[in-house]
Amino acid sequence: MNAYRGIGLSLAFAGAILTALTYFFLGIMPLVALWIGILVIGVSMFITPEEQIKKEDLLAVVEDMLSNLSMLFEAVGVSSVATYVSYGDSVYAFVSEKPIEKPPKEPPRSMLVNLGYTKALVLRSPLSSISDKVLAEGSDMSTAASYVLVELLEIADDVMCNEEAEVISCSITNPKLSTPARLEKTLGSVYGSILASIAASVYSCPVVLVHEEESRGKRMVVLRKIRNE
């Protein structure tokens, strides 16, 4: 029960008690009517539900939508390498047969782009709209990942990221969202997409989602930076 409903219940009880006391001991009818009004208000507040949609529910909707896209990718035979590229205030995911070594300089305007050496489907990353906010939290990958997954979205208990040369390994403790297998094979899970988007923003270079694995309450996400010469 939230505070609002608690206050409603208190008002209802107080209204009921005061109605009885005033009626039997004071006999002031307008005051009795006022307490009855407070009783009705209290009950009305008590039966009002909490409005906020839980973050998990919201992310489950996002996950379902991504899952549908993955099914579409599978149906049209798009392969399974997702490269995340940051364009300042937005992040795009390029789904192609091989990693995008040289992404376009400008954000793509169509969903399908031909880069010469490969074709790619382009989608805005789920984290695209808040990438600025993430960068404002600091330029450290671990800090930014922890801020988004643990504090902002509350979908994990902890995130630790280690960087070794071009490879970034992130360990997510107690991930709270399940991920359909087909989503993992194309765009990556919600966790993978978010971490790859953060990495692309933080390092300002294309980032490939290399591998994801979940076991015993931990999810490992492996990313690889592609340095542009």
Binding site: P30, L34, G37, V40, I41, M45, E51
Partner: peptide, 18 residues
């Protein structure tokens, strides 16, 4: 929020009526 707004308006109306 619409639910809270409804309760607030109802409260004001009850107080005014009383």
């Amino acid at each position: 929020n619409k639910n809270y707004l409804a309760n607030t308006i109802f409260t004001v109306m009850v107080m005014l009526t009383s």
